[in-house]
Design a protein around this nucleic acid. Structure first.
Lengths: 163, 163
DNA sequence: GTTATAAACTTAACACGTTAATTATATCCC
DNA sequence: GGGATATAATTAACGTGTTAAGTTTATAAC
């Protein structure tokens, strides 16, 4: 996703209507809301990425693995819906995980359009090896942001998601 | 970004520990926070995208155009920082906008590593033609979510972004 | 039972996200 | 002032996001 951009120290050229709070016009606010959502998400993900990268995983791959651990077996539609990943991306992600033998693809005889997926032993092993560090990050978050504030934020986000 | 996934109607296969609230383990909560941020952002962007698409613009291109309108002239670093776009992406976005003659690239004589960008007349025209609909979406949002709630959400997001 | 329609997944094409390496220019320090 | 170091932007390589179109298999209508 987004940056972690250089200090941007002292610039010279522009008038910099910046620290002067530009009086938030509507579209400024909307845009800053989408950007604020991005920035907040990035603050979280930037802690997870290094951890996942040690295992050659992306955040999306990790979401898929986590869901498969939790539910044992899911089809592609269910994975897409729960991981919030579009079908074309999911196709690639699953092909990748399959090629690395972290997940297995099964064919339900009842409906041959669908595919079911589950973790292999290797997949479970990766899940277990990532989990502890992942929990540690969560603890740090609760340390920074209270449990109540997280709950409040989640509530607002869920309501916004229904907009 | 993410989906707008099919109803997922009645599925048969998995036990579906779903409506039963799985008792939110730590990593479940963290993951759902990153996904909730994604989902909320998507709810907003899914309203903007069709509008922007009418003008052949992506959300990122729109952020750049909006910033250039607001600040007149910015260099790539400033754009990257404010639009929350990584430099490699920005390079492509600016090359694209430049090719469509929506922005102009300038070279400051004082520092020839940098480039300054500003909107062309065409770029300003697109900005003005997108703006009204963009504001309409904002009004709808304020209608759904009170101004206070938006402010509260923005505050929480900014704090989370500093995590 | 055949045809039309829908559903599940895939492919294609293009834009963006992410990390690392590269290039060109500035600046620092001796 | 010349060589090390830092900074601004780009390129490269790969993964994901987004939309539209394509394939295959189910289901509905007749």
């Amino acid at each position: 996703m987004p940056p972690k951009i250089r200090p941007a120290s002292a610039r010279s050229d522009p008038p910099a209507t910046d620290t002067a709070a530009p009086a938030a016009s509507p579209q400024t606010t909307t845009t800053s809301l989408t950007v604020a959502l991005l920035a907040a998400r990035e603050a979280l993900l930037s802690r997870f990425r290094p951890l996942l990268a040690e295992h050659g995983l992306t955040a999306q791959q990790w979401r898929v693995i986590r869901l498969l651990h939790e539910h044992r077996i899911l089809d592609a539609s269910q994975l897409a819906e729960r991981a919030f990943i579009l079908p074309p991306s999911l196709t690639r992600i699953l092909a990748n995980l399959e090629a690395r033998t972290l997940v297995t693809r099964l064919q339900p005889t009842s409906d041959r359009r669908r595919y079911l997926f589950c973790l292999t032993g290797e997949g479970e092993a990766i899940f277990r090896s990532v989990l502890p560090d992942s929990m540690k990050i969560y603890t740090e978050l609760e340390d920074y942001f209270s449990r109540d504030q997280i709950a409040l934020l989640l509530d607002l986000l869920h309501r916004l998601a229904k907009f």
